[in-house]
């Protein structure tokens, strides 16, 4: 029996029943931009940068199941503009200063921005005030860079069974909180060995005293960007 297939920008992609469009594309080595998706966790569908046209209708490819005969478009000028705008929105919503960020060169947001040729934030900056939490002996939380993808929430809950993180507020005031009456990370059960320590796509959950270890040119995404990783074209592969 032949496997079911859909076309992605004209290329036939075969998939297994139950796979989402982005999963099937990734397996086939085709990159669809993403931020909040993570292969080890169920789809979240909040960043919306993986939006594609499915039979002409805009849908998030991380939450839409692949179906036989679907016609999917991803690499269109209009979708690229939408994705650029979404990345720009994430930039202006927080405080992102890449030159001074420990995550620079390993950051999914930064890499996606470059991949989409985003050259400016476009919109006016919010410049929110978001104090960092340095209470934990080994971990720093810099909320200025949070894109609210909930990966840490999900990792801490589903894998670590600790529920260190949750979201509060709504709208533009939506923000990450930690599981302590004091509001301080030091008073939660967070440990550096937690899964939640390693899932943040941006520079929020950081090891203290470990920043800027790799020189420019040798950082993870300098070696292999998220796109190269999917396409199998990284310098290492």
């Amino acid at each position: 029996m032949t496997r079911p297939t859909f076309t992605l920008d004209g290329v036939a992609i075969s998939f297994d029943e139950g796979q989402t469009i982005i999963e099937a594309a990734r397996k086939a080595g085709v990159f669809i931009p993403f931020l909040c998706a993570h292969p080890e966790f169920p789809a979240h569908g909040s960043c919306r940068v993986c939006t594609v046209l499915v039979n002409g209708r805009a849908m998030a490819s991380c939450t839409t199941k692949a179906a036989d005969g679907q016609v999917v478009e991803s690499n269109t000028a209009a979708l690229t503009r939408d994705r650029q705008a979404l990345v720009q929105m994430l930039f202006v919503e927080g405080n992102h200063f890449c030159p001074g960020c420990e995550k620079s060169g390993a950051c999914t947001l930064q890499s996606l921005g470059k991949d989409l040729a985003v050259t400016s934030a476009g919109f006016a900056h919010e410049s929110p005030t978001r104090p960092v939490d340095a209470s934990h002996p080994d971990i720093l939380l810099d909320f200025n860079r949070c894109i609210l993808c909930e990966l840490c929430v999900r990792a801490s809950s589903d894998v670590d069974k600790k529920d260190v993180f949750a979201l509060s507020g709504r709208g533009l005031d939506k923000h990450l909180i930690v599981n302590a009456e004091s509001g301080r990370l030091a008073d939660t059960g967070m440990a550096t060995t937690d899964k939640a320590m390693s899932v943040c796509p941006v520079g929020v959950i950081l090891w203290k005293r470990r920043g800027f270890a790799d020189p420019i040119g040798k950082r993870p995404h300098d070696v292999e960007s998220p796109r190269q990783r999917v396409e199998g074209k990284g310098k290492t592969s």
Binding site: C47, R48, M89, G171, K174
Partner: peptide
Amino acid sequence: CGFCTPCRVGTHV
């Protein structure tokens, strides 16, 4: 509700 980027930031912009 603030769940997705376009609405959370876009409505404000």
